[in-house]
């Protein structure tokens, strides 16, 4: 009788491992395929049956990214636009979040509603007026337009999430600082801000991710000068001939910064992604 009793948990454990590994393979395989395709030569990539590991890795695709697709320009464009958008959203948003969290204000519900509804707005709705305004103002295909658009898209998110992070800090800590002799600003700078840093970092990474990955607005509001990485990557797909290796290399180059940054910030990620509603 004792045999099945000891065997069952072992079998169940093995089953659980098998399932977990299977699931991981499903989610990891396309990532592996993208990475390996980016290292394959034109010849290796069109082999059938496909080659998995037995190919000569080459950086030819990455080199071509820079020679054929102007990836360096796009990378700089992406970096500048995303940096501007992220700073705009973080600075304005954190200020507003602090006001919402710590001050008794009139019209707060209206504000909260506006913040949430902008978050729900499909970008396709605002793309036309932005397109028209950009042409009138002469800022079509410049950094400013996309930076403003991404800043706006990130702003409600920052306000909402940072409000939750600020509320997590007990008011009494700030009050103690004020009693200890700090002004409001000193209190924020010396006491609140250091405690807020992890939350700020997590929020920033998420805003960064949204702006960095954005394609719809970027493809419609730029034509030459301000093209971002997703736009040039999509350009690698031409209806007739598709440069698979090149496109994969662009994919890896785009995704790598986000993957690295977010995995570093895992601890506060859930809190941020659920608008503060779920603790990680």
């Amino acid at each position: 009788m004792s045999k099945p009793k000891t065997l069952r948990p072992v079998l169940q454990g093995l089953g659980a491992y098998a399932l977990a590994i299977l699931a991981t393979l499903f989610f990891a395989f396309p990532v592996f395929w993208m990475a390996s395709s980016s290292l394959k030569s034109e010849l290796d990539i069109s082999q059938y049956p496909p080659v998995f590991t037995s190919f000569e890795p080459s950086l030819v695709n990455y080199a071509e990214l820079f020679t054929q697709l102007d990836a360096l320009d796009a990378f700089i464009n992406s970096a500048v636009i995303v940096a501007m958008a992220t700073s705009l959203a973080m600075i304005c948003g954190t200020m507003a979040a602090y006001a919402l969290a710590r001050f008794d204000m009139k019209g707060k519900e209206v504000m909260a509603f506006e913040v949430l509804s902008i978050r729900m707005l499909p970008p396709i709705v605002s793309v036309i007026p932005m397109f028209i305004i950009a042409r009138t103002l002469g800022i079509f295909d410049t950094y400013w337009l996309l930076a403003a658009a991404y800043g706006l898209a990130g702003l409600p998110f920052v306000v909402w999430v940072m409000r939750v992070f600020i509320q997590d800090i007990p008011q009494s800590i700030e009050e103690a600082a004020m009693i200890d002799g700090c002004s409001r600003f000193e209190t924020f700078w010396r006491v609140t801000l250091p405690l807020l840093l992890p939350g700020l970092a997590a929020t920033m990474v998420i805003v960064f991710m949204f702006s960095w990955n954005e394609f719809l607005l970027a493809s419609m509001l730029t034509s030459q000068e301000a093209k971002t990485l997703p736009v040039i990557a999509a350009n690698a797909i031409k209806p007739k001939s598709i440069a698979w290796g090149l496109a994969s290399a662009a994919g890896v180059m785009m995704s790598l910064p986000v993957v690295v940054l977010v995995l570093l910030m895992q601890r506060y990620l859930v809190r941020g992604l659920t608008l503060g509603a779920v603790k990680g």
Binding site: S172, E175, A176, M178, I179, C182, V191, L195
Partner: peptide, 20 residues
């Protein structure tokens, strides 16, 4: 007057210590 100009000290129920 702001708290800092009152020359007072205060102890809080949850202590209000700076955790960092």
């Amino acid at each position: 007057a702001e708290p800092r100009h009152r020359d007072i000290a205060m102890a809080f129920q949850d202590y209000g210590l700076y955790p960092n």
